[in-house]
Simulated assay, not measured.
Amino acid sequence: MQSVTYRLSAPAKVNLFLTVGGRRADGYHEILTVFEPIPLADEVTVTIGSGSAGKWAVRVRPGPSVPRAPREPAPLPLDLDNLAGRAVIRYAHEVESLHAASRSVTPAGVEIIIEKRIPIAAGLGGGSSDAAAVLWALQEHFGHPLDSLALRRVALDLGSDVPFFLYGERAIGRSRGEDLVPIPPEPGLPLVVGLPAFSLGTADVYRRHDCLSARGTAGASGRQDPERPPSGTDRVGLLREALAGGRMPEVARALHNDLEPAAVSLRPEIRLALEALRKAGCLAAIPSGSGPSVFGLAQDEKDLGSLAARAGEWLSGTSPGAYEFVAMVSGPGPDTPGGRWGHPSQVRRRR
């Protein structure tokens, strides 16, 4: 069996809006969010060949990561400790359960090399995007044996953000984030993104949010009633209109993240990074997801680099080395193929 190698760009995201409802019986929270892809991306190389003794085999290893001084990148989880590796096994189980009689998909050996550019455990969805890239490669390789519903089921089992990354363009997310409503992706947003030199666990942030909600200090939409959805539908509507019109001051006023108080209480450096972005001249700044990554919205693309430099200079006086600020315009980036996964950026066949 020839092995086939797929090289894919796996972009990060920020959350332009995030409200959190109560904790559900399954342990997850109802959320209302607006996902925005950004061109910061991992490179994921997936090589699919013959399995060993009729069994699936998975190996995940790191590629050469791009150094981001002064970051000390967290080590990449390997093999089935990595969400991308678990994506292979979950995909195989789904295909085998649906196509057991036909055996249309034979067990394979899958090697995944991830060149990390997205910080790990930073609220940018890097691991989820890597897993989505692997799912795309498997679907392409085996002739799309899963329909859209089955593929979404696999993605959601892996993580709440993985369904978004299969879609990959600006969208409203409801429920756990998997109930997606597309929003026109243009225009892109001029952003300064703060990449942290430290990580923050999503579960830790949600636990702190629940504690703050119980005390009544988590913000207007923090609540413990799981039967009530998160608030913010009207504000999302305003944000959607502002995005469509490219009206950055209105977009800035609509940016919101319910998890900001919880994240800041765990890592006060986040507050300093947000203050640095605002002092540098951004219209607004919030954390992405559960943090600790942050981003600021600018009026336009002009002088984005200067904004990033000023934010870094300001933060160096209060929390040196905590963040690197990078200027970018939102969107999945020119290296992301086919609108999301339309075609692999490169395919190599070998014996």
Results as ranks from 00 to 15, higher is better:
V134D: 07
H343N: 13
K55P: 00
L18F: 09
S199A: 15
T33F: 04
S293P: 06
Y323M: 11
H141G: 05
R348W: 08
R23L: 13
L189E: 02
F295E: 00
E169K: 11
V66N: 08
I112D: 00
D81G: 15
R351G: 11
L266I: 09
S160L: 11
A25L: 12
S293I: 02
P185W: 01
A171R: 00
V66I: 12
V134I: 08
S265C: 09
V88A: 06
I183S: 00
G125Q: 09
I118H: 03
A84D: 04
W314Q: 07
G194L: 06
R103E: 13
K279W: 06
R215M: 15
G126K: 03
R170A: 00
R240C: 10
C211F: 07
E269T: 08
A203S: 15
P344W: 07
E260N: 06
R351Y: 08
S221R: 08
D300F: 11
H343Q: 12
V192C: 12
L200A: 04
A87N: 07
Y323C: 14
G201E: 15
S128V: 00
L304K: 01
A100I: 06
R215Q: 15
T233W: 12
A84Q: 04
I38G: 03
G216Y: 05
F295P: 01
H209C: 04
Q2E: 10
N257G: 05
E324A: 13
D157Q: 12
L315N: 01
L243T: 03
D130M: 08
A298L: 10
V154R: 03
G296I: 10
S52I: 15
A10K: 05
S199T: 14
P119H: 02
G143A: 11
V34A: 13
A53S: 15
R240A: 14
P70F: 12
S97H: 11
A92D: 09
G22H: 02
D234C: 12
I172Y: 00
R86K: 15
T318F: 08
E36D: 13
V110Q: 03
P37T: 08
L32E: 06
G85C: 05
G289D: 00
I120D: 04
R271T: 03
A12H: 14
G245V: 01
P67T: 07
H144M: 13
L272G: 05
L151A: 08
E140I: 05
P332G: 12
P73I: 14
S148K: 12
